[in-house]
Design a protein around this nucleic acid. Structure first.
Length: 557
RNA sequence: GCACCCGUAGCUCAGCGGAUUAGAGUACUUGGCUUCGAACCAAGGGGUCGCAGGUUCGAAUCCUGCCGGGUGUACCA
């Protein structure tokens, strides 16, 4: 495609002596394989009728592009529609499945996503952000990047103290040995229940609130002193470990894996140090007893990094996290994937770091997605009881899958859930309707898996050796044409960091195949060998695309 | 108040490097399995692209204003 674009630009230069940037698009199939409105754009600078320019250009292109082009036509006000020769199209389609962009070749990329807090439950939002983050990390990896997946979470703080308070109440005091009474498979549930109990107590019971505040300080001390021996420390470390086990199990189930967790406790110190050091250099300033960054100077808002008690706020911890990642990886790109509720917050944090580590910030991208909301715009709230856990979404999809097929296919269930989240453009809120959001038919993950399994089934049945694509019939040509678009789509999704482009494309690809399937026999057809090749590269392309999305493409389902 | 994001079929969403007749899915109404997997395919109805201006030969797409919704906005995370 780029070759064609430069070839056309060269022809324009030769014919009209004008430097032009030619952009080819993929028009409706009826118009051709590529289209450009360059003649329309040239009309003004050249002072000519666009159709006239188009005619001249088309005539020249027909001869100069030679064998690879079958036809160049003019339509409407002056669109140039280009149809490739079957050979050229076939060659493009053949190389499509193995295509990899080189955007991140030889580059170190750190992808941080998911970011759940220990001592709490994973909710639907974590599922969404994990799925999207994983797909983005795959995208960087596919484009040649050396990708490091990392995860950040608060293993200290008020939420921990709330849970710890309830844990102590459950255990009847600081008695770590009683933790053994909690069966391993119930641990995460038990802790989640403790968090709810602690949160309620914090709000309703002043006495409990005081104890939780006290407990919060003690947990900080355990961390600061490296205490692993006291009964309370024993309970804390054990339950903290349970949380990470629970996270790991969940990530394993949805098929993503982190090479490193950055617990808040491990970066808070560096954050505090950094902010204090930069306070002396005037990046941060004192204000009402707190240390703040005056974002107003940069059109942002002011935020507190160290509160008046001298404790680091989330801002300082984020400084620590960002600095620690920088030390650990010295990355070419750092991508942080979070919800869009913290965009302004992150701008302030990054702007402050930019004052002393401009290179780091220049290599950092904060990507945001929307929130997962319940149908009808209902906000999720644990207290109102309309809270959706990550497993609830998975369970619901499992149920729907079972209802439709009578089977419990984990791969299909995950395909449904992941695709439902990925197919939407990142950035806007996701409306989750427990009843029908995760669809298994139509534009859905299972549709793609089915369209893949069907193709593999054909390939299994054929005895012939595949033959190269040539002199294509309409149905064959449509499929080859669609396959040939894959590299462009992957490239676009990578540079824009928008995985949904792949979803849109794969659905169209599968749809094109299903139409082909409806009207064209493969096995025992005179054109079997060539069609076999077509079906194979189609299935390979679909599989490659699904792989980038983190969706399995089983040969049978 | 200010800042950022968003308003496209009943519902959920693509399209927004401006352009050839606004597209899917779902739901609804129909038709198609003695032939490679019907989680499929085909047909139909359904849209003043929030509103009003502007730029342009041409705007869902770019600019401005307004209306509506969301989020953020100093010691929470």
């Amino acid at each position: 495609m780029e070759k064609l674009e430069t070839a056309i630009a060269a022809v324009i230069k030769k014919l009209f002596g004008h430097e032009a940037v030619v952009l080819l698009t993929r028009p409706d199939e009826q118009f051709g394989d590529y289209a450009t409105n360059i003649a329309l754009q040239l009309a003004r600078p050249l002072g000519k009728n666009p159709r006239e320019i188009g005619e001249t250009l088309a005539a020249e292109l027909r001869t100069s592009l030679g064998e690879q082009v079958q036809d160049v036509t003019i339509a409407g006000p002056g669109f140039l529609n280009i149809t490739l020769s079957d050979q050229a199209l076939g060659a493009m389609a053949g190389s499509a499945p193995a295509f990899r962009p080189n955007t991140y070749e030889n580059q170190v990329v750190v992808a941080e996503y998911s970011d759940p807090n220990p001592f709490k439950v994973l909710h639907a939002g974590h599922l969404y952000t994990s799925v999207v983050g994983d797909a983005l990390a795959n995208l960087f990896e596919t484009a040649g990047g050396e990708v490091h997946r990392v995860n950040f979470g608060g293993d200290v703080g008020l939420h921990v103290a709330k849970t710890m308070w309830a844990i102590l109440a459950e255990l009847g005091g600081e008695q770590p040995e009683k933790l053994q009474a909690v069966p391993p498979e119930k641990r995460s549930e038990w802790m989640a229940a403790c968090y709810v109990r602690g949160t309620n107590a914090y709000e309703e019971d002043p006495d409990a609130k005081a104890k939780i505040v006290e407990l919060n300080k003690r947990v900080y001390q355990i961390q600061a002193a490296g205490d692993h021996d006291s009964p309370l420390a024993h309970i804390y470390w054990t339950c903290r470990a349970w949380s990470y086990e629970y996270f790991d199990a969940f990530y394993a189930r949805i098929g993503t894996k982190f090479e490193k967790y950055y617990p808040e406790s491990e970066v808070a110190g560096l954050g505090l140090e950094t902010v204090q050091a930069q306070l002396k250099k005037g990046v941060y300033e004192q204000s009402d007893g707190a240390v703040v960054f005056n974002g107003e100077k940069y059109g942002l808002h002011t935020r507190v990094f160290i509160n008046s008690e001298g404790l680091p706020t989330y801002e300082a911890k984020d400084v620590g996290l960002i600095m620690q990642k920088w030390r650990d990886y010295h990355f070419d790109h750092s991508v942080v994937i979070t919800g869009n509720d913290i965009v302004e917050y992150m701008k302030v944090v990054l702007k402050s770091i930019e004052q002393f580590e401009p290179e780091l910030v220049g290599r950092t991208t904060h990507l945001t997605h929307g929130q997962v909301k319940l149908a009808g715009g209902v906000k999720m709230s644990s207290r109102k009881g309309n809270f959706l856990r990550a497993v609830d979404v998975l369970d619901e999809a499992t149920r729907a899958n079972h209802e439709l097929t009578g089977q419990n296919n984990e791969q299909t269930m995950l395909a449904a859930v992941k695709y439902a989240f990925l197919r939407q453009r990142m950035g806007e809120d996701i409306i989750y309707d427990p009843k029908e959001s995760v669809s298994l038919e139509g534009n859905s993950g299972p549709y793609l898996q089915y369209a893949h399994a069907r193709a593999r089934s054909i390939v299994r049945k054929s005895q012939q050796a595949p033959a190269p694509l040539a002199s294509l019939q309409p149905g064959e040509r449509s499929l080859a044409r669609k396959i040939s678009e894959y590299p462009e789509v992957l490239e676009r999704a990578t540079t824009a960091m928008l995985p949904h482009h792949i979803c849109t494309y794969l659905y169209e690809l599968a749809q094109t195949f299903n139409r082909f399937y409806e009207h064209n026999r493969v096995v025992d057809d005179p054109r079997e060998a060539m069609r076999l090749q077509l079906v194979t590269i189609y299935a390979d392309t679909l599989k490659a695309g699904l792989q980038v999305l983190g969706i399995a493409a089983p040969d049978q389902m």
